[in-house]
Each structure stands twice: as C-alpha cells, then as structure tokens.
C-alpha cells in the first residue's frame, strides 16, 4: 500500500504550494532566458529535488546568465568559479590565511560557500580540485586543513562543460558524471528567440532588474515537501526496470545512484504538476536528462546514451 521515502506524507496543499513556487520561479527566469522553457523547468525541479546539474554547451549561449537568474529568483547567493588546470583545491574551498595582527589563521571562504555555485569548464580542473567540489556536492561539506565546514542550504552546483573540443580534453570520469542529477543542453536559440534575446539586451540587461519571487526558507520547505511525495512500489519497480535495461545494453549502465536521482527528479516533476504522488509519466519525462550522461554505450553499438535511454523507455513495460 502506501510507502513513502520519509515518515511524513505530503498532502495536496503542500504540493500545490510547491507547484506554484516552481512555476513562479520558472516564469521569472524566463524573463532573462528566452526560449529554453524545458531546460529552465528541469533546472528548477533539480533545485527542488536536491540535485546538481551539468550544462554542456557551446560557448556563449547563456549558461552563466541562467545560473544567475535562478539564483536571483530565489533570493540565493551566487558564486562563479572558472576552472583551469592550475586551479588548486583551496581556490575553491577557501584558504586559511595568517593574520599578522591577531597572529591567527583566518578562514577566507572560497566560492563554494554560496547557494548557487556555477563551475565553468569543470573538465579542465585538476583531479584534486574536482574532488573538493565533489565532496561539497555529495556531502554538503568541505574540509580545509582538517576542519570540516558545511556549505549553505539550499546548495546547488551548476557545472558547465565545453562541447567543442571533445577529444583534446578529458571526459569527466564516469564516477563524477554520476554525481550530477541531470545533464542539460541549451543550444543555440531559434531565429525568433535569438531576435528576442537581442531585443532584450538593448538598454538595461534584464538580469539587473530581476527580483526574487521566492525566499530561501520557501525553497527549503519546498525541498522537504518534494522529498515526501508519495512513491509507490509500482514506480520504484519501473525505475529499476529502466536502470536494468540500460545495464544490459551498454558497457556501463545506470547505477543505483542514478535510479535514486531519477526517483527524486520524478517527485519534483509530480509536485510541479500539483500531484502528491509520482506517476510513470513523471518518470518518463525526467528519464533522458537524468540517465543519459551516466551511460557508456557499447563501443560497437551505434546508440548514444540518449538513444539508449529512449529505447529503454520504449521497450520497458510501464
């Protein structure tokens, strides 16, 4: 019968509030970002589902703008980190600096201590720096010189990856890719949207005048409600079947962590639709963005990760 992830059940009123919030934020962000409604929605639901997002794109399509707009809309702090091969972990986490006056070490927090952290070109970061970031994403805390400090709540990392020079740069290792709930792709806008973008940036840039439509506490409460959305065994079994299909048809398929991510994303999607229980349609909606990047296809197969997920959706009984 009824079987939830947490003890409390989210009732209909809570869910309506969450859905409302999500729609408000999305609409607000779209004042700045033109034409990527689905991506914005996915980003907002990822925020509500406690996930992190990887944006892979060509340069200059608005990844930074998107992250900033989201942060602004929910009245959260925003920091940007540009990853380079010489970036040290302390550049991310912060460093203890010796204060001559007090003769003590003061901790200067790094950019990781913000609600919304944009990490540009994460694939150029050296391994140690990447692991510091991943620790923060996974455990919501960082360790500097032995001391552990928590990152703020809510906390979301939006990382970007350049899609141009694939062969000359490292792929993010599969283990790291797995930490991102979703991988999204903006792409070039279509003709009308591009014109619209140009129209908007003439004069004042909309990001400067963007005001928040939700508060930090609201986001925290919304995240809690989303975590309590009902998930029945039928859905759990469906998600498991999808994951297993990918494992059977690829060198590396979706891990249990991936399945959990899809489940959470499904909960957020259900809440977005004012429903306090997850239905298969929610799962299907979130499946591709949640699964595709975790899959390494069989080398002689001609399917990309995305195509394999689509095939799984087609062939797995609901």
């Amino acid at each position: 019968m009824s079987d939830n992830l947490a003890a409390d059940t989210t009732d209909h009123a809570d869910v309506e509030a969450v859905g409302d919030l999500a729609r408000r934020v999305t609409t607000n962000v779209e004042e700045v970002i033109v034409g990527h409604h689905d991506v914005v929605e996915h980003l907002v639901t990822a925020l509500l589902a406690r996930g992190h997002v990887l944006l892979e794109d060509v340069p200059g399509v608005g990844k930074t703008m998107l992250a900033r707009a989201v942060a602004r809309s929910v009245d959260c702090s925003f920091k940007r980190v540009q990853f380079t091969p010489d970036l040290l972990p302390t550049d991310v986490t912060g460093v203890n600096v010796f204060n001559e006056k007090t003769r003590e070490f003061d901790f200067h927090p790094g950019p990781i201590f913000a609600n919304v952290v944009l990490g540009d070109e994460i694939n150029r970061a050296p391994p140690k720096t990447q692991s510091a970031l991943l620790e923060a994403m996974e455990e919501q805390q960082v360790t500097v010189d032995g001391t552990t400090r928590h990152v703020p709540d809510p906390f979301i990392v939006i990382a970007t990856q350049n899609s141009v020079e694939r062969d000359r740069t490292y792929e993010l290792p599969a283990a790291e890719l797995d930490r991102f709930m979703k991988k999204l792709h903006l792409g070039y806008p279509d003709e009308d949207d591009e014109s619209e973008v140009l129209a908007r940036v003439v004069g004042q840039h909309p990001i400067d005048t963007l005001s928040p439509v939700a508060g930090v506490e609201e986001i925290v409460a919304a995240r809690q409600s989303v975590a309590n959305v009902t998930v029945e065994s039928a859905i759990r079994e469906y998600v498991t079947r999808l994951a297993r299909y990918t494992r059977e048809h690829a060198t590396l398929g979706v891990s249990p962590r991936g399945s959990i991510s899809l489940l959470r994303a499904g909960q957020a999607r259900a809440a977005l639709n004012d429903r306090d229980y997850v239905i298969p349609d929610d799962v299907q909606r979130e499946a591709v963005v949640t699964f595709a990047h975790r899959i390494r296809p069989a080398p002689d197969g001609d399917l990309t990760g995305r195509e394999l997920v689509e095939e799984a959706l087609e062939r797995t009984t609901v």
Binding site: I279, P280, D281, E314, R315, T317, V318
Partner: peptide
C-alpha cells in the same frame, strides 16, 4: 497499449 506507453498517455 505500447510497451513503453504510460496508461495516462
């Protein structure tokens, strides 16, 4: 109903 088609759709 197709295999991957949800009942709702």
């Amino acid at each position: 109903r197709r295999t991957g088609e949800t009942p709702r759709r």
